[in-house]
């Protein structure tokens, strides 16, 4: 278990600047998830931590020791790759034992560690198989096992579940959460899937265009996003971001009809443009009052339903309908009410 500090980390590939001064501290035993859209630099940041990419500027420290100049092999970290990166010509056992052989451990110690990890990951029956004879989920578990046996300072995961089907992804996600609880190691996990981020993370780091937008616990990010990007990125369906104008203190108008919504306007002057953020689950249907909405689509997901509606001058508005609305959403128009 170790801690990690990044100070002013920058990374450029030629004239392309990928990371623009990242400052971050990851505490002992913490599960931190880097999340962001494709190309935001999250995988590059992970590779910089791993030592697979050199930093252009800034410093990386593990347990207070500067490792910026150290190669990956000397940092004592383990990484689980998106593609698994299993050695195809070696058996599951050999794949897991390879790093331990490099460390020069005695044969019985290697055997003990491999079998313990295989037991944890339910791989005991597959130790003699080659990776090509395993399913995607089993391969992923071997890749995780290869990391576990080394007892690394920090576990790094680069989108490890992205090649699995939806069902297996949920199952493996749970296994990973269980593994973190069991091992207690410091883990850094990269994903573009916010559900993975929300369910696994102690803290989430939201990245965009090579910069950290916000760092916080999943609920902090969900309930108190620092900016529009985080507000729009975290949550599915995404938060409604409605452009409006402060009409008077405590009242904002939105849409072409100038519909008035009561909300805190703090020190904003009348006439100031604002963006109103409302989560889909914070809207409810009303018979008579609220924002008039033309219904475009109703998604019934079984356990829950969402309504997608349009109002003049506003982007499409998703609203959570709960579970008992199926008969009433066949109407062509509804009124939406913000319960707050």
């Amino acid at each position: 278990m170790s801690e990690l500090s990044l100070t002013g980390v920058r990374k450029s590939f030629g004239s392309t600047h990928v990371l623009h001064g990242i400052d971050l501290h990851v505490a002992h035993g913490e599960f931190v998830v880097f999340v962001g859209p494709s190309g935001c630099g999250k995988s590059t940041l992970l590779r910089v931590i791993a030592g697979l990419e050199e930093v252009t500027d800034g410093a990386v420290a593990i347990d207070g020791t500067d490792v910026t100049g150290l190669p990956a092999s000397e940092r004592g970290l383990a990484m689980v790759f998106q593609s698994y990166a299993l050695y195809p010509h070696m058996s599951v056992y050999k794949n897991m034992a390879f790093a331990l052989e490099n460390m020069g451990l005695p044969r019985d110690e290697i055997d003990k560690r491999v079998r313990r990890a295989a037991g944890m990951l339910q791989l005991t029956d597959y130790l003699e198989r080659k990776p090509r004879a395993l399913s995607g989920g089993q391969r992923q578990r071997v890749a995780i096992g290869r990391a576990i046996v080394r007892d690394p300072k920090i576990f790094l995961f680069d989108e490890p579940l992205s090649n699995l089907d939806a069902e297996l992804r949920v199952a493996t996600r749970k296994e990973l959460a269980g593994l973190h609880a069991e091992l207690g190691g410091t883990m850094i996990y990269v994903t573009h899937d916010q559900v993975e981020a929300m369910t696994l993370a102690d803290r989430i780091v939201v990245l965009q265009a090579g910069k950290i937008e916000q760092v916080g616990t999943p609920l902090e990010l969900y309930n108190r996003p620092d900016n529009l990007f985080v507000a729009g990125f975290i949550g599915s369906p995404r938060m409604n971001l409605l452009p409006g104008t402060v009409a008077r203190p405590g009242i904002v108008t939105v849409g072409d009809g100038g519909h008035e919504i009561a909300c805190e306007t703090a020190t904003l002057a009348s006439g100031a443009p604002v963006t109103l953020g409302v989560r889909p689950e914070h809207l409810s249907l009303s018979e008579s009052q609220g924002l008039p909405l033309a219904i475009e689509l109703v998604e019934r997901l079984g356990g829950e339903s969402y309504l997608y509606g349009a109002s003049p001058g506003l982007p499409q508005i998703p609203a959570f309908l709960g579970t008992a609305r199926s008969s009433r959403t066949s109407r062509e128009a509804a009124q939406l009410r913000d319960p707050s």
């Binding site: 697979l52 790759f81 790093a99 490099n102």
Partner: peptide, 14 residues
Amino acid sequence: PADLYEAAEMDATP
């Protein structure tokens, strides 16, 4: 695949 070499590097392979 290049990632096999990266995995080997992470495994501290001479």
